[in-house]
Each structure stands twice: as C-alpha cells, then as structure tokens.
Computed example of a mutant assay.
Amino acid sequence: MGSVIKTVTYYKTAFWETKGFHGSCIVIDDTEPVNFILNDTKPDGSYPALLSYIPGGKAISWNQKSSEERKAALCKLYSKIFKSEDALQPINYLEFAWIGTPFIGGGHSPFYPPGVITGYARYVLINVYFCR
C-alpha cells in the first residue's frame, strides 16, 4: 500500500473564492508537503474546506512531525497560494495518517508494479482529478 496522510482544513468562509480562485490546484514544489489541493466545500456552499494528501516519501517524513506542525505548514502554504491571511485561521483541522495506523500498512493508493495496470486494467478503477 502507498504511504499517505489525508488532511481536511475547514474555514469560516471560502476565502479563496473571494480572491478569484477555484480552490483546487497542483503544487509543483518538492519542499511543500502536498502535491495538490482540492476544494472540499459542500455543493450548497456549507463547510468551506480544503482537502490535501501528503503522499509517498513526503508522508514518511511528515509523519515524524506533529499534527499541529502539519496543520501549520499546510495553512502557510494555502495562505501563499491563495494570497490570503484567512488561510492561517482555520476553524477545524482533521487528518488521517494511514502510514501510522497499525494493521493497515499504508494508504488508499497501492503501488502497481510493471504489468499490473496493462494486464488488469479492466479490473482496476483509477481516479483522475482535473483542475479548472
């Protein structure tokens, strides 16, 4: 199984929308904990939230830090990306570290060695996320 930490950061308002951002983006920076951010606000606009995954080797190193350290790093990143100090003031933060959970041994994304997808593609569901 893959190494991953899932995070959801809740805010009072969807501040990113007032700045003209959708809330979902790809992060191309190896120094940051996440590779992408998704707007997880409910369809009716309630519970404004940003969802991120800390993947792979990043999950291994960030798992050594506290939940508060991960939260602070993510809020700082969100503030930088969405150009808003509001990102530094979440009203709630939740995370689940599959990597540190006994008897699970990893995250939601298993490692597929060569030949698995090409040999079993019709049996494997692959989720693809597109940003607008």
Results as ranks from 00 to 15, higher is better:
2 G>Y: 00
9 T>V: 14
16 W>M: 04
16 W>P: 02
17 E>Y: 03
19 K>L: 11
20 G>R: 07
22 H>W: 02
25 C>E: 03
25 C>D: 02
26 I>K: 14
31 T>V: 02
31 T>I: 03
31 T>A: 01
31 T>L: 07
34 V>N: 04
36 F>Y: 13
36 F>L: 09
37 I>Q: 05
41 T>Y: 02
44 D>E: 06
44 D>F: 06
45 G>D: 09
47 Y>G: 01
48 P>R: 07
51 L>Y: 13
51 L>G: 00
52 S>Q: 14
53 Y>F: 15
54 I>P: 03
55 P>M: 10
58 K>P: 07
64 Q>F: 08
66 S>P: 13
69 E>M: 14
70 R>Y: 11
71 K>L: 15
74 L>C: 11
79 S>M: 12
81 I>K: 05
83 K>L: 11
84 S>P: 06
92 N>R: 05
92 N>K: 05
94 L>F: 11
95 E>Y: 12
96 F>Q: 09
96 F>C: 11
96 F>A: 10
97 A>Q: 11
98 W>G: 15
101 T>K: 09
102 P>A: 12
104 I>L: 15
107 G>Q: 02
109 S>K: 04
110 P>D: 01
113 P>S: 09
116 V>G: 00
118 T>N: 08
118 T>Y: 08
122 R>T: 13
127 N>M: 13
128 V>T: 14
131 C>N: 06
132 R>F: 13
